[in-house]
Design a protein around this nucleic acid. Structure first.
Length: 427
DNA sequence: TCTGGGGTCCTAGGACCC
DNA sequence: TCTGGGGTCCTAGGACCC
C-alpha cells in the first residue's frame, strides 16, 4: 500500500509570526536578521521578489533596503518558539502521528486516512491554522518523507496548487513531467556540492535522479543519497519519529557584539554559554562526559591577525552540574587563550552525552555531594523557569556583559511576557 | 563599521589488536 | 624483489538541514 505522509510548514515563518502581532507589517517587505543582526534568515514574499537571497549579510543590502522600504527586525526566538508550540499542537490534531522536524515544519502520518480526499483535508489544515493562530501554511503529500518535502516545495512555488500538493493523487505521467521540471538541487538532502557533482554526471532534474541507478549513486556518493533515490521512487526509508530522540551533542556559541580581547571577558562569555548548554542538558535528563571549548577571531577581517583553536576536555566524572562543567570550560579556555587577538566568537560543545542515572560509580565518588548537586540544579532550574531565565546565575557570567550579542531591532515577547502583551484599542 | 547558531550522519584514515 | 588479513575504535572533516 502506498504511504501517505504530509509535510506542513509555515510560510516565511519568522516574518509571519511578527505579522500576527503587528499588522502594519502586512504587505510590506520585511526581513528577520540572525543573531547579532548579521544575516537575513527570513524574508517576506515581497523581499524574495526583490531577489534578496537567504543568508545575505544585512550590511550588503542596507542601501537597497532603504530604497525599497524594507523593514529589518532582530530575531525574537522567544516569540517564534512559543508560536511554534501553538502551531504544532494545532497541526497535531490532524493526525495521531506527528514528527516535529524543525521550528516551522512537521510531518504528519495520514496512513489511516487513506480513504479521505487528502487535498481537501490539506486545505482544511491551512484554513484552521490560519484562523487559529494567523500563520499561513502549505501542505505537501507523498509516499515518503522526501516526496512530501518535494510536494511541499511545489505547493509553495506553484500558485495553481493553492498551497496543497498531493503527489499520490497525480497520474504517474503527470508526476514524472512535473519532476522533470524541478532542478535536482531542490531535493531534500541534495545541497550545493552534491547538486554540482550530479549535474556533471548529467543528472539535472529530480526525475533524472529518481531514475538514476542506485548502485552507481552509492558508489559515487553515499548510502545517504542512495536512500534518497529510493525515497523518490516511493519507497519509504525514513521513518516518522514521533518521539524526538535525545540529542547527542549540545552546543552553545555566539558571535560577540564587539570584538573581545581580554581573558576576563572571554571567561564571562564561556560561563554564560556553558550555563545555557547545561540547562538544555538537564532538560533532556542527560549528563555529559566531555566538553569542548573554542574561540576564534573574525575570519572576514583578513587584515587582522587570525587565531582559531578548540580543545576537548574529559570531565573527571560525567555530570550535568553547571559548576562542574564551568570549571572544565574555564580550564580549557585558559589553555587555548592567546593574548593580542581580537576575538569574534567563542563557544562550547557538550559531548559524550548519556542518560542521567546510568553510569559507572567509582570507589572515590562522593555520592552525598552528588545528591546535593542534583537538588541544587533542580531548584535552580525551577526558579529560573518560574521567575524568568537568569534570575539565578553564576557571578562568573559578569554583570556588564559588553560582549553580548547585538539585537537593535528587537520586538516585544508578545506571548510570553506579561509586560509585553500586545495592546488592542477599539476606535 | 557590519558576515548566525545548532544540529545530524557518513566516510576516511590512523592506531591498535589478534 | 618479496612484506597478512581482518576487525574495532576514535577522530577529523565534509556535507547536509533549518
Amino acid at each position: 500500500m502506498t504511504h501517505a505522509i504530509a509535510l506542513v510548514d509555515g510560510n516565511n515563518f519568522y516574518v509571519s509570526c511578527q505579522r500576527v502581532f503587528d499588522p502594519k507589517l502586512e504587505g510590506r517587505p520585511v526581513v528577520v536578521l540572525s543573531n547579532n543582526d548579521g544575516c537575513v534568515v527570513a524574508r517576506s514574499q515581497e523581499v524574495k521578489d526583490l531577489g534578496i537571497k537567504m543568508g545575505t549579510p544585512w550590511f550588503q543590502i542596507e542601501r537597497l533596503a532603504r530604497q525599497h522600504g524594507i523593514l529589518a527586525l532582530s530575531s525574537n526566538y522567544t516569540l517564534y518558539a512559543d508560536m511554534s508550540h501553538r502551531m504544532m499542537s494545532i497541526l497535531g490534531e490532524f493526525s495521531p502521528n506527528q514528527e516535529i522536524y524543525s521550528i516551522d515544519e512537521c510531518f504528519l502520518d495520514f496512513d489511516g486516512l487513506a480513504r479521505r480526499d487528502l487535498t481537501e483535508y490539506g486545505q482544511r489544515i491551512r484554513q484552521i491554522t490560519r484562523q487559529s493562530i494567523g500563520i499561513p501554511v502549505c501542505v505537501g503529500l507523498g509516499a515518503s518523507k522526501t516526496l512530501a518535502k518535494l510536494a511541499n516545495h511545489v505547493a509553495k512555488k506553484r500558485p495553481a496548487f493553492e498551497g496543497v500538493c498531493d503527489f499520490n493523487a497525480m497520474a504517474p505521467q503527470a508526476l514524472d513531467a512535473l519532476l522533470n521540471d524541478i532542478a535536482v538541487g531542490e531535493v531534500w538532502g541534495v545541497g550545493g556540492r552534491i547538486a554540482q557533482r550530479l549535474r556533471a554526471l548529467g543528472i539535472q532534474s529530480v526525475q533524472d535522479l529518481k531514475q538514476a541507478r542506485p548502485k552507481i549513486i552509492r558508489q559515487q556518493f553515499s548510502v545517504v543519497l542512495e536512500r534518497t533515490v529510493a525515497e523518490l521512487n516511493g519507497v519509504s526509508c525514513l521513518a516518522l519519529e514521533a518521539i524526538a530522540p535525545a540529542k547527542k551533542q549540545i552546543m552553545s556559541s555566539r558571535s560577540f557584539g564587539v570584538p573581545v580581547t581580554s581573558l576576563d571577558e572571554l571567561t564571562q562569555a564561556v560561563v554564560a554559554y556553558t550555563t545555557r548548554a547545561c540547562e538544555k542538558l538537564r532538560s533532556q535528563n542527560s549528563i555529559a562526559g566531555s566538553i569542548q571549548v573554542y574561540l576564534r577571531t573574525n575570519p572576514f577581517k583578513e587584515t587582522d591577525p587570525q587565531y582559531s583553536r578548540g580543545i576537548t576536555l574529559s570531565l573527571p566524572a560525567p555530570s550535568s552540574d553547571t559548576r562542574a562543567l564551568v570549571r572544565s570550560a574555564i580550564a580549557g579556555l585558559q589553555r587555548i587563550y592567546r593574548p593580542g587577538f581580537a576575538y569574534q566568537k567563542a563557544g562550547i560543545l557538550l559531548d559524550d552525552l548519556r542518560p542521567a542515572g546510568i553510569r559507572q560509580i567509582s570507589l572515590f565518588d562522593d555520592l552525598d555531594g552528588e545528591e546535593r548537586s542534583q537538588r541544587l540544579m533542580t531548584t535552580l532550574d525551577h526558579i529560573n523557569r518560574k521567575m524568568g531565565r537568569d534570575t539565578l546565575r553564576l557571578l562568573g557570567e559578569g554583570l556588564e556583559k559588553r560582549w553580548k550579542t547585538r539585537a537593535c531591532r528587537l520586538t516585544p515577547c508578545y506571548t510570553t511576557r506579561l509586560a509585553e502583551l500586545a495592546i488592542a484599542r477599539a476606535i
